[in-house]
Design a protein around this nucleic acid. Structure first.
Lengths: 87, 87, 87, 87
DNA sequence: CGGACAAGTTTGCCAC
DNA sequence: GTGGCAAACTTGTCCG
């Protein structure tokens, strides 16, 4: 059994290990939030330059769909090859 | 105030109205589940014909992305026109 | 071997057959989405009448569990009767 | 008027400027997604060590609330001090 | 504050 | 039967 996987009444999780994990997650969450703020800033800057933010968001979303499509096509190819026993 | 919007201590919701809503929802849920089963059947039939189900699912998903893209482009156009004050 | 189940170098799926399957699936998916929208509409209507949607969802979920339980009890009864040769 | 804010018949957005904005946003979005993946990885690692991911998420959420609460208390204190002319 | 958008949670499905 | 993968539903967040 793992160090952390214990049953009821045996809840001696490794404090240090747990602490490390939580801190890493929180650090990453902070980073993620910061990047999110950066994105908001860019939209704000665009707005300041007179761009329509809603349109800008749609452009970004549309380009994302394109990217997803391309990614999906890659996967399709893999799937086809696999289905045909060519992988 | 609406018939149903009442405060604490005034919980005499309209039994008939509530019943009607719940029944309509449940009827629709049943219908939805039935359609879901139909879909499964078609995939089963395809499998019986020798098609690779996973590939089939990808095809459907890919075509959906295409449709989403087209819908998004329509919206984009509207948004552009609106942003340019042309609507 | 089925028409569709072929190996490497023999991957000539029946275009018409495949097309038919995909279209049937997409049609059903559309239908399913429509019913989903209908359900959302009913919840919206309930909300408009002052009902708490979250609570309403819980009610529907609870009743579903009840139905499932009753169905299982029926099945159990059948199983017992069958085991006793009483069917 | 800004370069980008123009009316009907004057919709010449600065292509380079727009391109730059979109690219900065997409770059940041990519970064954000990458950090999100990192977070998932850590949860995955935790799972591998036998931790219950759901509980872990709750812990992180709780600690976030605590932090927010502490931050609000700080702000409140500042506000009070400012109101009392003690800053 | 209400609706759109994104995140998280849960559920069902397929492969192993 | 189990565990990972993908879809659906629910919940929370942000903008208007």
């Amino acid at each position: 059994m793992n160090e952390a996987a214990r049953g009821i009444g045996d809840n001696h999780v490794d404090r240090e290990s747990l602490k490390g994990l939580v801190e890493r997650i929180e650090s990453l969450e902070t980073e993620k939030a910061a990047v999110g703020d950066d994105i908001k800033e860019v939209y704000g800057e665009a707005k300041g330059k007179g761009y329509d933010v809603k349109t800008l968001r749609r452009i970004v979303a549309l380009r994302k769909i394109d990217k997803d499509r391309r990614r999906m096509e890659e996967e399709m190819l893999e799937t086809y090859l696999a289905a045909l026993g060519m992988l």
